[in-house]
Design a protein around this nucleic acid. Structure first.
Length: 347
DNA sequence: ATGTAC
């Protein structure tokens, strides 16, 4: 008999469709436990913001962006002026070399230059070399077409069923997870070079779309980061804070934490309501003074901060359930989503 | 989120 537990306070709104999806997943053959994170929202077939254990491996529970995650790199810059730096960001839609390495992708992916605005755990922040005013590069991206091909190869034969040869799937999966981390590092290096900035080793790099195996149990994470004694960057929105946390989630939470603020509106709703509520200019130049590089107007509305839950609520829920302890918060200076001038791009 | 079809 499987169980479902949602880690959100009663005042945190969770779309009922996402909770329904947790129960649908829990009813699958071999399922053990579904843990919903406070950023839980509906996904395609499976919930996003969930960690799910079972005795069999379900590739669709990880989804197509295998190895998607968030990395944080320390970066050194003399005078970070958002508009000037925004103009110097490289074209991260253009790959480095033959495949799509070094590219950010679309959707909620981004590369952000951010500044530590508050230290919340002084000893832990000091260990990471972070203090108020420290600059970091936050990279949220995944395995691009590679992970998509791996899931499609499985789905074409087995649909949403389990992997009959989990070892073979895991080999491809693990490669995509490594590729995702390399992709994030590659982008950080591209940006640092373009800005003439010094880049340090990653302080944090955790995938939130992956499956791990131990003692006969597959732990699938979809929009949920490893929370077993690791540091995790939990992303806010393009115009609000993000939080670096020390995660210490136990078995009830499937050793996992949230990965971001979580959508509160579908992309279609965000586009429709956003167009009535915001101008393109106010989404590009945010209330916190940051600049958003995004030549795709539709994406700008879909990803508007108002389409997401409040990150402080998500962090509050994690803290209240003792899944994580906040270390520092960051405020964006420049967020790169996609090239500033899509018309100038060659096809 | 993605590549691809419309």
């Amino acid at each position: 008999m499987s169980s479902v537990r949602i880690f959100a306070s009663p005042s945190s709104w969770i779309e009922s469709g996402a909770v329904d999806q947790c129960h649908q997943v829990a009813a699958l053959d071999g399922m053990l436990h579904v843990a919903g994170m406070p950023d839980l929202h509906p996904g395609k077939g499976a919930p996003i913001g969930a960690a799910m254990t079972s005795t069999v491996l379900y590739p669709f529970l990880v989804g197509s962006d295998i190895g998607c995650g968030i990395a944080v790199f320390p970066i050194g810059l003399k005078r970070p002026v958002p508009e000037k730096l925004a103009a110097r960001f490289p074209d991260l839609d253009e790959p480095v070399g033959a495949d799509s390495l070094g590219t950010v992708g679309r959707g909620n992916h981004f590369v952000e230059l951010a500044r530590v605005d508050a230290v919340l755990d002084a000893a832990h922040a000091a260990r990471l070399g972070l203090s108020t005013g420290s600059l970091v590069l936050i990279v949220h991206s995944g395995s691009r077409g590679l992970g998509e091909r791996i899931l499609r190869r499985h789905t074409e034969v087995h649909g949403a069923g389990p992997a009959p040869d989990p070892v073979s799937y895991l080999q491809d999966h693990d490669h995509a997870v490594r590729w995702g981390a390399l992709n994030r590092r590659t982008m950080a290096e591209r940006v640092a070079r373009a800005l003439g900035a010094e880049l340090g080793d990653a302080l944090v790099d955790e995938s939130h779309n992956l499956v791990t195996y131990a003692d006969g149990v597959y732990l699938h994470r979809k929009g949920a980061a490893r929370g077993d004694g690791r540091d995790v960057l939990i992303a806010g929105t393009r115009g609000t804070r993000s939080f670096l946390v020390a995660a210490h989630a136990g078995p009830e939470a499937n050793h996992s934490v949230a990965h971001g603020a979580g959508r509160k509106m579908s992309r279609a709703d965000a586009l429709r309501r956003g167009k009535a509520k915001h101008t393109v200019d106010e989404l590009r130049r945010t209330p916190v003074g940051s600049y958003v590089v995004c030549g795709d107007r539709q994406l700008l509305f879909e990803e508007a901060p108002t389409a997401y839950k409040r990150i402080e609520q998500v962090i509050g829920d994690l803290t209240a359930h003792e899944l994580a302890t906040p270390v520092v918060s960051t405020l964006p200076l420049v967020t790169y989503k996609t090239a500033a001038h899509p018309a100038a791009r060659r096809r």
